[in-house]
Design a protein around this nucleic acid. Structure first.
Lengths: 248, 248
DNA sequence: CACTGAGGTTGATGCAGATCAATCCCAGTT
DNA sequence: AACTGGGATTGATCTGCATCAACCTCAGTG
């Protein structure tokens, strides 16, 4: 079963003290409201590599906020083929697509050792009813989700897709206070390929070419972006797509 | 400019009497709450063929609910290439992706003569704060939007994509009380092609083959689905994707 | 009723990227 | 330090669908 080990430091990681607050649900909340939110958040369950948070078809109960590490959500079609819908970084929510249907529509899986906060959705709705800023932030985050997935439906060449993916990932790391030019590709090549509807071989070749063109430097999971502007141009989505959005 | 002619019968088309209530925002509202909602809904603006409701980049103010006809939302990338994100049928909302960024991310355009209701989002948020069932329905509809766009990111063969599109459209017509096996393709072939990331020629060839295979009958804009089951099988997304969801 | 033009259809060709098939690389194990 | 196996890379080949080009259809117009 899922190893939901509370972190030793869980008490210190409540929303009010969590560095991710400005990206996550608490954005805009007063300190009083924050305390109410903390009451319904189960903070800091730890998942080890490839553990399932939930599986498609299971009754909807919680939405999740990533605390550390990374998770992926995976759609499985009737033939059993998998499609990675998204990768989720700290401060991002997932499971929101299950509100309507009351059952999860995808599998959620950890990448490496990762942790997250669980929020019982029924509690969240009740609390959002009391706290206007929480309702606002929840709606905002869902809206962002809608927009980013709209942008992703626009098919492109493989170059555009991979460049766009890297640029977006860089922006998301930057938002979280990490370097936007140097970071680890936590997910396997195969996962990137799957997410972008490409063959792993194509990812490999593109990385090689991007490197030859001086755009990036990759060595296993280490990525160094050398020419962000060129990469952005390549991705083909400059104006409306870049600001204030980030595709994830 | 946009011809926003109030319908002569507008008074009779308020939410409480609108047949689309069970699909649209009013779902779950008591009759008292319904009146409050009606207060903030500007019902029944009419748009003629190819009129813009809003354009990408414009400040966000309203979300829209389709009353009659059909609208499409179109993403325009930095090279000016257009991509149709979705077609919107009566009872469906659009503009929700602009909540986060506070500006519309796409162009919204009418297909044929169509009408819609406009709801100032700031009013809606305030009202949703007072009416739990409205908040619930708004969140539900956004969740549905998230889910359907997730499903659409899963790339497939052209056969699967077109079959899936037709099956989903049929289901949406059925929900609205129309035949699910006979309906008009309001949008041009070119628009279907664009939406599905295919060439118009491919749509043409597929329609021909589907017809030869006894799946459908098409004559210009008239579509008759002869073998829904086969079409569903072809679309490749039986279990989780069909119920209770509809891709749009 | 012929004319026009936009949308749709049909056929021929080309290519981007998938697929297939080795080979390589390296982290983890013994 | 040799061994193992899964992921990544590289090269060769194949193919689905886009693209190009020509033609057809039909609603609208004078």
């Amino acid at each position: 079963m899922n190893q939901q080990i509370p972190l030793a430091s869980a008490e210190y990681l409540k929303c009010g003290r969590c560095s991710l607050g400005k990206l996550c649900l608490p954005l805009g909340l007063s300190s009083n409201d924050m305390v109410s939110l903390e009451d319904i958040v189960e903070a800091g369950s730890v998942y080890s590599e490839s553990e399932f948070v939930y599986r498609a078809g299971k009754p909807f109960e919680y939405i999740y906020a990533v605390k550390s590490g990374m998770f992926k959500t995976v759609l499985v079609d009737s033939q059993g083929a998998e499609h990675i819908v998204g990768f989720h970084l700290p401060g991002e929510l997932f499971g929101l697509d299950a509100i309507y249907s009351q059952q999860y529509g995808s599998n959620a899986v950890s990448l490496g050792t990762s942790s997250l906060c669980a929020i019982r959705y029924s509690d969240l709705e009740v609390l959002a009813q009391k706290l206007p800023s929480l309702q606002h932030q929840l709606l905002s985050l869902m809206s962002k989700e809608v927009h980013t997935s709209f942008v992703k439906t626009h098919d492109q060449t493989v170059d555009q897709k991979l460049a766009g993916f890297l640029v977006a990932l860089a922006a998301r790391y930057k938002q979280r206070g990490y370097s936007e030019t140097r970071f680890h590709l936590v997910m396997a090549r195969r996962d990137i390929a799957n997410h972008l509807n490409m063959a792993p071989e194509t990812i490999s070749r593109l990385f090689k070419r991007f490197q030859a063109d001086g755009l990036i430097e990759v060595k296993r999971t280490d990525l160094h972006i050398l020419n962000m502007d060129a990469l952005k141009t390549l991705s083909g989505c400059l104006e409306l797509c870049s600001s204030p959005f980030v595709r994830n």
